[in-house]
């Protein structure tokens, strides 16, 4: 079981990569569908012909009719997956406030994401969000810059800022009568902008905003947008407050090496048993733990600080009588 959990992080990267590459593939599929609908292959430019040929070669073994490719459409903000319509809960909440009405056909599309969030917390942020894919790479870039001697700031801000962003966004949605989150919510922006860039020939205004958030993460604080600003993150944090599946430290096998604290991009403190609402169950800390002290547990609350790890210096100094045969685990 433990050895399986260590590989969860790789599985997560696989999931992130699949989502992100789908966002790039889908616009090409749409282009191919429009070329097919026009019945004018001979009139296409050489580039368009290349796109058409490539997509056809890749998809024709699986589907006969290009129309069937519409089974997967949209992006993580709202999309169709083999007939199943899924929407971001933030989109639903924003739309309820903007239109001041309940459109149930739309609200039920957020049901599955909400249930998953109630069980697993901010799992969307860690496992699916296409912005996370870029933000995590951006964080690796920050580590490189730091190694090269450039100043990369890791300020601490107030976690509650994002709840203010969420509330202000909802109020603005009511005031303008339009869903305002779509333009400041990175996964929605990325889904759209990739489509604009591929199918409509250029990035829109959202790309500029997204670049700014990347700089914010580099220059102000680590993964700052997700932790302190993102309204979707705020909503998921609230929904996942009493999540059932959470990471727990086993104090008997912990050796206080603090690798988990370093690897946690959300700046949480697994060493102090502090996961809280922010933890997105990304399992990077489980993968990095040398003594397999971290694992998943079923509980609605984090445990209180259990004291220093039993394999660490601090604990052994305080309890010299304890048999240290366990230390040979290392």
């Amino acid at each position: 079981m433990k050895s399986f959990l260590r590989h969860l992080n790789k599985l997560r990267w696989l999931s992130l990569s699949i989502v992100f590459s789908m966002l790039i593939i889908l616009p090409f599929i749409h282009l191919y569908q429009t070329y097919e609908a026009a019945h004018a292959y001979d009139l296409l430019t050489p580039t368009e012909k290349t796109i058409s040929d490539t997509v056809e070669a890749l998809t024709s073994p699986f589907v006969k009719d290009p129309d069937e490719l519409s089974a997967v459409k949209g992006n993580t903000w709202s999309g169709t997956l083999f007939g199943l319509k899924l929407s971001d809960p933030l989109a639903v909440l924003g739309q309820i406030f903007a239109s001041m009405s309940f459109y149930w056909a739309f609200i039920v599309t957020a049901l599955i994401p909400v249930v998953i969030t109630l069980l697993f917390g901010r799992v969307y942020c860690g496992w699916i969000c296409p912005a996370t894919f870029i933000y995590e790479l951006n964080d690796n870039l920050a580590a490189w810059l730091r190694k090269a001697g450039l100043p990369v700031s890791r300020r601490k801000l107030d976690r509650r800022i994002k709840y203010i962003v969420l509330v202000v966004g909802l109020l603005l949605s009511v005031y303008f009568g339009a869903v305002m989150f779509g333009s400041v919510y990175p996964p929605a922006i990325i889904g759209r902008e990739i489509y604009y860039a591929i199918a409509l020939g250029g990035f829109g205004a959202g790309a500029v905003f997204f670049l700014l958030t990347l700089f914010f993460d580099l220059m102000v604080t680590r993964r700052g947008f997700c932790r302190y600003v993102c309204p979707g993150g705020a909503l998921y944090s609230l929904l996942g407050r009493y999540r059932l599946f959470r990471i727990k430290r086993d104090v008997a096998t912990c050796n206080d090496c603090a690798k988990c604290n370093v690897v946690c991009q959300f700046g949480l403190d697994p060493l102090q048993d502090d996961f809280g609402m922010e933890c997105n169950n990304c399992s990077a800390c489980i993968a990095v733990c040398p003594t397999d002290a971290l694992s998943f547990t079923v509980s609605t609350h984090d445990v209180a600080f259990q004291g220093p790890g039993h394999l660490g210096h601090k604990y052994r100094k305080a309890h010299p009588d304890v048999n240290t045969s366990e230390t040979s685990v290392q």
């Binding site: 949209g74 709202s78 903007a98 009568g177 339009a178 889904g191 759209r192 199918a199």
Partner: peptide, 14 residues
């Protein structure tokens, strides 16, 4: 404007 969530699916389907 109050109903549209700007998901872009209409354009992706057209």
């Amino acid at each position: 404007l109050s109903k549209c969530i700007r998901c872009g699916k209409c354009g992706e389907t057209c």
